[in-house]
Design a protein around this nucleic acid. Structure first.
Length: 360
DNA sequence: AAGACGGGGTC
DNA sequence: GACCCAGTCTT
């Protein structure tokens, strides 16, 4: 791209963003703490989903110190339903590091940022460019899509070749001293105009520069990669009732649904009935022999790479077995069903709780 | 380099 | 039902 065209594109993008940006709560002050939290929340998560979580979060945790002092369950409760729960546990760990080593402030050095848990190349660049307005190119999924169309990239957008090209172009067209505005303009364009489907080319400020629009193949960019098949999984959980309370356990702080609470249970193997699987899992996980009382519900829940059928049973534990032994959980409670809202559950469990509440 | 990690919006 | 989102971490 020629110098003159680059300057023209920069001007059009910046002017468009100045006039058309959505008013968002983290665009009011550009404080490093607010940019950090918003960027973590926005990882693989849409703006519309994030806004209410962000507002609640800032109400409860207005700064690094309050995060560092907060309990894990308090933090998780504010994240419940947003997914990728290791993000919030990493925020907690990072807040501790910030208090210990950086005086409770976000550093502006790229490598210092990268050392904080949960901050990778994208988020480090986002904090540097958006909070500190340092000259730092920023490439997210939006920018990848915008560039793949603007420059009519024919290789799969996630390929090594494409990624290298995108990075170099992002660096080339970044106007010095305008990173905060320009980087957001590029992402905002991807989020609101240059969308995955039905892009608004008629209203696009950089349409005159767009090679794939000129060739009328915008709808075929970006070129996708190959994807994996979705695997169906059958899962059973047990609501153990005793003295009017139900048993819940807390998942380990690493791995799937880290730190969230759940009802005990597990995967149904091919040869098993749900009841057999439940009996086996309760014995394995808790050392309990259980009796199914009744079936509560079956819930379908879709994840990125698998589809879960969740079968839920009310059951009672054999009193001879005594208290449950925690073999797979990091904590456990007997709770009043009315208190379940005080704990953070995965979405599929949350839906189950809603059903239990309607049919006590 | 590839897979794990959530949930919801959209067509 | 498939795609995708203001990505990061682990192996």
């Amino acid at each position: 791209m020629e110098r003159r065209e680059i300057r023209q594109l920069q001007g059009r993008l910046i002017r468009w963003f100045t006039q058309n940006q959505r008013p968002l709560p983290w665009r009011e002050r550009y404080l490093p703490y607010e940019i950090w939290i918003s960027e973590i929340m926005l990882q693989q998560t849409r703006v519309d989903t994030v806004v209410p979580y962000y507002l609640r979060w800032m109400q409860r945790f207005p700064g690094v110190r309050s995060v560092a002092r907060a309990g894990q369950d308090d933090l998780l409760k504010h994240w419940e339903g947003m997914g990728y729960y290791s993000r919030v546990l990493n925020i907690h760990r990072a807040a501790g590091i910030l208090m210990d080593r950086h005086g409770g402030e976000l550093p502006r050095n790229y490598h210092d940022l990268l050392e904080l848990p949960g901050i990778g190349p994208y988020t480090a660049a986002a904090i540097r460019s958006l909070a500190f307005n340092l000259d730092e190119p920023l490439v997210d999924g939006n920018v990848e899509r915008v560039f793949s169309r603007l420059f009519n990239m024919e290789a799969p957008v996630k390929s090594r070749q494409s990624q290298a090209y995108i990075r170099s172009m992002a660096s080339d067209i970044l106007p010095s001293g305008r990173a905060r505005c320009f980087n957001q303009a590029l992402m905002e364009l991807g989020a609101t105009v240059c969308t995955p489907r039905k892009p608004g080319c008629l209203h696009c400020p950089v349409a005159p520069h767009c090679e794939s629009l000129r060739l009328e193949i915008v709808h075929r960019r970006p070129v996708p990669g190959i994807r994996r098949k979705i695997v169906p999984v059958q899962v059973v959980v047990g609501i153990i009732e005793q003295d009017g309370k139900v048993f819940i356990q807390k998942r380990p702080s690493r791995g799937l649904m880290a730190g969230l609470w759940e009802f005990p249970g597990g995967k149904i193997e091919n040869t098993e009935t749900p009841e057999e699987a439940l009996a086996r899992e309760m014995k394995e996980e808790l050392g309990l022999r259980v009796q199914c009382v009744r079936k509560i519900a079956s819930i379908e829940h879709n994840y990125t790479s698998f589809r879960v059928s969740l079968h839920a049973y009310a059951c009672t534990a054999d009193p001879r077995d005594g208290a449950p032994a925690l073999r797979c959980a990091s904590d456990a409670r007997w709770v009043d069903p009315g208190d379940l809202d005080n704990y953070a559950f995965p979405a599929a469990n949350r839906r189950l709780i809603d059903i239990i509440r309607k049919n006590p």
